[in-house]
Amino acid sequence: MAYFLQQLINGLTLGSIFGLIAIGYTMVYGIIGMVNFAHGDIFMIGGFVTLIAFMVLGLSGITWVPLALLLMLVIAMAFTALHGWAVERLAYRPLRSSGRLAPLISAIGMSIFLQNYVQIMQGARNKAVGQPLISGGITVMESDGFTVQLGYMQIVIVVLTVVLMVGFTLLITGTALGRNQRACEQDMRMARLLGVDVDRTISLTFVMGAALAAVAGMVWLLYYGIIDFYVGFLAGIKAFSAAVLGGIGSLPGAMLGGLLIGLIEVFWSAYFSAEYKDVAAFAVLVLALVFRPTGLLGKPEIEKV
């Protein structure tokens, strides 16, 4: 029981991170019907920006944890969002009218480019945060000599995710931007005729997705304490699986899918084998695609006649 509870805590933490990344996939897919394969690398850049911010803050003597955390959050979101915006502007917008395949290939190219760019700028070796910013935790229960720990960092991750999700939902449902995004998603041409600035709406979608991925990158770095230029690949693919599992195009679906992938991965490594945890996560994706191709919360695509 205690062991199970511990895995549940770990799974929810990891799932929150996947969920944050998955939002970016699902939003971009929803609005322009394209899988942004560079999104995982945007997440990785979020981690690296956090690392740099962490070093700079440490050197400048800002060590009060809440302030440092807030500053890192803002810096990571800003710089990563800039990357997200630039990727859309340079690699996708010029190809928007050229079918589905060209932007997809462009996205893969962008992914490789971003990895190499970080590799050259930051080096190929693992980068570690010397000292954890937030350590320790609460002992939830003890039984049979096994201690269930709820780390402070885990609390931060889950709380941050919940806050961002609530804010994000308000943005989508209650503001002009959110309304425009939904309008573009449902009928882009009509939205443009009604005066919606489609290009700006798409740009802001990328910016928002990248900002959320930056938060995921930040908490990933602070949680695991280590990052390298290649981390975005696997995390990105898993978050993409999460988006598909939840129903691509659906925001609650992305969050749910993220949590499920996180839980599956953690429970599989806890009870079966840690080597095959990735296989477990992707096997679930395969099963989802076979038995429920629209995902858990996705709606079937209605053929327009």
Binding site: L171, T175, A176, L177, R179, N180, R182, A183, Q186, D187, M190, A191, L194, G195, V196, D197, R200, L204
Partner: peptide, 28 residues
Amino acid sequence: FPRMSVLENLIVAQHNKLMRASTYTLTG
């Protein structure tokens, strides 16, 4: 826009003046 409310359909159509007033969403 079938999955938006009736009212929202009409408000999206007034996007231009709304966006100008909201200075692009942040103030919104």
